[in-house]
Design a protein around this nucleic acid. Structure first.
Length: 305
DNA sequence: TCCCAGGCCTCGG
DNA sequence: CCGAGGCATGGG
């Protein structure tokens, strides 16, 4: 064995659930070369994590026994807290705790999913475990093309986030709500962020920094609809952003961004139609996805890359 | 130049 | 409740 210099038993392994393929998920993670929150290299993904004041860079890969391996890079061994945090983070990120077999069963009888699901077998809804990051990504992505959204996110992260260095590269931690709450619209203008979006970001940062919006609060809702109402009451968060966040961060399987233009385009292309589906057509399609709207949406999005 | 992007808010009917 | 207009900018 050719061991590297990190000798502090700093690997956590997680058995993969059924209907999971690491490569398929890595393929989704690779969709933008402009992504700044992690780096793909060969068959692994590297990312900075922070737990309390402690930071780490981890490399997530798949070992030969169908386990996910989280290896801590760097010379200082992670604390027990950090190890536990990293495992929970990766479980959430890659959705390792969800049994999706009933989604796959449902897909077999669906005119759209019947063909799509086998193409991307083992793909999970990739999460954005941090609430502030998820809301920001939603707001940033409103109304602009995805390429520009990635650019805006990168500028925001590199201007106000924290770099964790490893082997000459910077692994970025997302800007904190506290830092963002202290910014002004003028601070964000040089990033080419619109004034309106800057207001939204700063406002939601303030809510989260003050503890007036938390994941616990949303998870304690009676259901997806009530959680959606909590979110859409916030300026800058409409139905699309709310459902996007509920899907990617809170992991409501029935979250459904029905207004999403990407979803509309995916359906149009798959059905070889001239026009995008009407709202009524979308509702009709989604009736069969009940309880799994988020997964259905994510798989349909996947067809676009 | 024009239109579309992983929308949302405001305002007038 | 519903539709139109404005927002800012990049990319095809």
């Amino acid at each position: 064995m050719n061991e590297s210099r990190t000798e502090h038993a700093a690997t956590v392994t997680i058995p993969e659930p059924g209907a999971f393929r690491f490569a398929e998920n890595l393929s989704y993670l690779s969709r933008s070369s402009n992504e700044c929150m992690y780096q793909i290299r060969q068959n692994t993904v590297r990312k900075a994590l922070a737990c309390d004041q402690e930071t780490a860079v981890v490399e997530v890969s798949e070992d030969e026994y169908q386990h996910i391996a989280i290896r801590f890079l760097g010379n200082s061994p992670p604390s027990a807290r950090m190890r536990a945090y990293a495992e929970a983070y990766v479980r959430d990120w890659l959705d390792l705790n969800t049994d999706i077999s009933s989604f796959y069963e449902l897909a077999e009888n669906d005119e759209l999913l019947r063909d799509v699901v086998p193409r991307f077998y083992g793909l999970r809804v990739i999460g954005i475990p941090d609430l502030f990051e998820a809301v920001c990504w939603g707001i940033i992505g409103q109304q602009i093309n995805l390429a520009f959204a990635y650019t805006l996110k990168r500028r925001f992260v590199e201007a106000f986030g924290q770099a964790v260095p490893y082997e000459g590269d910077s692994y970025w931690l997302f800007p904190s709500p506290e830092t963002t709450a202290g910014l002004s619209v003028q601070d964000l203008a040089p990033l080419q962020m619109s004034g309106r979006k800057s207001e939204y970001l700063i406002h939601v940062a303030t809510l989260i920094a003050e503890g007036r919006l938390t994941k616990e609060m949303l998870l304690a809702s009676s259901g997806c609809k009530q959680a959606e109402q909590l979110l859409t009451a916030i300026r800058g968060i409409g139905p699309w952003t709310a459902n996007y966040v509920l899907m990617r961060c809170l992991r409501f399987a029935d979250a459904f961004p029905i207004d999403d233009v990407g979803l509309h385009n995916a359906i149009k292309l798959l059905l070889h139609q001239e026009a995008k589906p009407t709202k009524a057509a979308l509702q009709r399609l989604a009736r069969r996805w009940q309880g799994w709207e988020a997964y259905a949406t994510f798989y349909l999005w996947r067809t676009l890359y």
